[in-house]
Measured scan of single mutants.
Amino acid sequence: DEDSERELEKLRKNNASKEEIKEVLKRLGFSEDEAKKLAEKAG
């Protein structure tokens, strides 16, 4: 959803580590696997 998109955008701009991105995604309700895949894509 839009909030998670914004959250990811912010992380990308701040050069967050894949680990940080994954944690945020998991907080947003993604499964471990989904979060890992998305973090890879974002990283």
Rank of each mutant, 00 (worst) to 15 (best):
E5F: 13
E23K: 07
D1L: 12
E19N: 05
L25H: 00
K13W: 09
A39G: 02
D33E: 14
K26W: 00
S4N: 10
V24T: 09
N15Y: 08
K22D: 06
E2A: 11
N14H: 07
E19L: 04
K41F: 12
K22V: 15
D3S: 09
K36T: 14
S17A: 04
A35K: 01
S4R: 12
G43W: 15
L11G: 02
K41M: 13
E19Y: 03
S31M: 05
K26E: 06
E32G: 02
K18T: 13
E23W: 00
G43M: 12
E19M: 04
A35C: 15
A35G: 02
E32Q: 03
D1W: 14
D1I: 12
K37T: 08
E5D: 10
E20G: 01
S17Q: 05
F30S: 00
L11K: 01
N14Y: 06
K10W: 12
K41I: 13
K22R: 11
S17Y: 06
L28G: 02
E7V: 15
E19C: 10
R12T: 07
L25Q: 00
E2M: 14
D3L: 12
S4A: 14
A42N: 13
E19H: 08
S31W: 01
K13S: 09
A16Q: 03
A39W: 05
D3Y: 13
K26D: 07
D33N: 05
N15L: 06
K41Q: 14
K18G: 06
E5W: 15
K18S: 10
S17H: 03
K10M: 12
L38A: 05
K36R: 11
K26F: 02
D3E: 13
A35N: 00
E5H: 11
V24Y: 14
A35M: 05
E5R: 13
N14F: 05
K36Y: 10
K36M: 13
S17R: 05
S4T: 15
L8Q: 02
K36F: 10
N14K: 08
N14W: 07
E23L: 06
K18V: 14
A16R: 01
L8F: 04
V24A: 14
E40M: 06
D3N: 10
S4G: 12
L11S: 02
E19G: 04
K13R: 10
R27K: 13
E5I: 12
S31G: 06
A42T: 10
K26H: 06
G43P: 10
K13I: 06
V24M: 11
S17K: 05
D1G: 11
V24W: 14
K41H: 12
R12W: 14
E34V: 08
E23S: 06
A35T: 02
N15S: 05
F30Y: 13
V24S: 07
K41T: 12
V24L: 13
S17F: 07
L28C: 14
E19A: 07
I21G: 00
L11T: 01
E40H: 05
S31P: 06
L28R: 01
A42H: 15
V24Q: 07
E40W: 04
K10V: 10
E40A: 06
L28I: 02
R27E: 08
L11N: 03
L25D: 01
D3W: 11
E7S: 06
D33T: 04
F30C: 09
L38E: 05
I21V: 06
S17P: 06
E2L: 13
L8T: 02
A42F: 15
E5P: 04
N14E: 10
L38R: 05
S4M: 15
L8H: 02
S4Q: 10
E5Q: 11
K22T: 14
L28D: 02
